[in-house]
Design a protein around this nucleic acid. Sequence first.
DNA 1: ACATGCATTTCGCAT
DNA 2: ATGCGAAGTGCATGT
Lengths: 260, 260
Amino acid sequence: MSSTHITVADVSGRFYPSFHSPLSMTRTRTLGDPAPETARDAVADGLESASVVTVFGRCEVDYEGRATSYLGPGDRMVVCKPDGTLLVHTNEQRTPVNWQPPGCEHAASLRNGSLALTSVRENPDERVEIGFQRVDAVVVYGMEDVEELELSGTEEDLRQRILDKPELIEDGFTPEETEYATDAGAADIVGTDTDGVRTVVELKRRRVGPTAAGQLRRYVDALERAGTEDVRGILVAPSITEGARTVLEEEGLGFVSLEP
Amino acid sequence: MSSTHITVADVSGRFYPSFHSPLSMTRTRTLGDPAPETARDAVADGLESASVVTVFGRCEVDYEGRATSYLGPGDRMVVCKPDGTLLVHTNEQRTPVNWQPPGCEHAASLRNGSLALTSVRENPDERVEIGFQRVDAVVVYGMEDVEELELSGTEEDLRQRILDKPELIEDGFTPEETEYATDAGAADIVGTDTDGVRTVVELKRRRVGPTAAGQLRRYVDALERAGTEDVRGILVAPSITEGARTVLEEEGLGFVSLEP
DNA sequence: ACATGCATTTCGCAT
DNA sequence: ATGCGAAGTGCATGT
């Protein structure tokens, strides 16, 4: 639009070295209310430089792939990550209203004089097209991030605790295999009880419903089909729903309450 | 930091009316490399004004709730939505590295002279603490968005097609109930086949594994437990895995290939 | 509030 | 590439 916008963009768009790590490639460019051409160029440069590009503006979104969707005009926040991830966020919800998983090709262009973003991937063939009616801001952010998330309280942690202390399941329980492959998937823990009876343990880190009970049943059945005569099944979770209890009882399966 | 930064922030931080809809409350404020106090104030104002607040900077993240996590220092993009959603995005992946679902309380403060964000909720008690070592940019974006996503190709669409044309399942199939409640959950479609035999249909919009076969089995079993003598089960999906086929065969269940 | 299942689930891991 | 299940799953819907 007017050259004023470009001037503002040039003022607010800056390069500077990282404050705490002098060798960092971190750099930030901020454009306020850019003209379409300015926005297109900034986005294209950002995509090329492996930066995270965020566009704030009013847009429409078309999606076609595993499903199909159309989103009418509204203010959104659009994020393109250098790994090929696309996010379209509205002003509510944790889940993006439209998105593309990592591995996509992103491109910026001008369509009828307005900024347009395209994200495509194959396998499956999927395409997201975003047409902007207005661009309020663009941030091109060259990020450095080497840290991994340290997460605890997972099902894996629960399993480790049981392997360290099998009596948490019941006295005399001896774990023998983890991730034991059956016809119907992998059972979390398989071992023997105090009487030497083969016992399948299914772990859940939170309260469970009928699905988990059915899953345990599948493994017990698979072991029986595979030739083991007597097989017990124990579901381990903090708690279970009434529906889960029904399935367990009908199938003669057990439940042990255990927090992750 | 230096007053230069504050000046830059003031230049790039602007308010303006929406370009295309004059009555819109849309407004955007962009700060580049703000001093901690400036950032804190902008974030606090944004949270108060029901805007989407996005902070680009180097930070650490602590989470405690259903699980526990720590994320060491790195460049991230942090989004606070007016519905209480929090997103912490790295430069890769579709899923935020840390987050908080809608309904949280967000607050901005200064900790040791640096910007800090806190997000808390109850039921379950969960808390995310973000400590910034550097703030590269802040965008406060007052969004207007009334459009709903129009999505097609869902399981619901597949069900409607079958109800309109039951012979897609097999000749003589007559749907009688949808979302039919059983002990073990709700069955998608229940009807009778050409011989009047009660038939449960489980729908999936994409290729399925053993889980879906087990789910169908649960419903068939529940109907039999509930008194129906002979019950058939049919899994409807574009395709199934070998593991799913095994379960279906062992349980005498059928499969019909159908695309959504 | 709880139960239940879908989701353009995403993601990681094993085959 | 496909199969399989976990996830701090999120989310809508029904009770």
